[in-house]
């Protein structure tokens, strides 16, 4: 699941020079880590909804925690699908 998610991040966000192996599952996705921004968060939210049919609602959920790292994002999607 984590690797699949990493590939989705790379494809969705046009991270041409980055491979799955370059992304640390525990590292922050935004700002310091991969250096992604708020537009990327929206784009990723849309891609996750399309691929996993999981909607992340910014009004109800703690989006900062969910998008903290690949690991937290994978846990959230897994739990939402179960």
């Amino acid at each position: 699941m984590e690797n699949e998610l990493k590939q989705l991040i790379i494809d969705t966000l046009d991270l041409e020079d980055i491979s799955v192996a370059d992304i640390d599952s525990q590292a922050p996705l935004f700002n310091d880590g991969l250096g992604l921004d708020s537009i990327d968060a929206l784009e990723l939210g849309l891609a996750i909804r399309k691929k996993y049919n999981v909607k992340i609602d910014a009004e109800k959920e703690d989006v900062v925690k969910i998008f903290a790292s690949v690991s937290t994002l994978a846990d959230y999607i897994q739990a939402a699908r179960d």
């Binding site: 966000l13 537009i39 990327d40 929206l42 784009e43 849309l46 399309k50």
Partner: peptide
């Protein structure tokens, strides 16, 4: 289709 937030921005 849904509009890409990146494309919109």
């Amino acid at each position: 289709e849904e509009v890409s937030p990146t494309a919109f921005s």
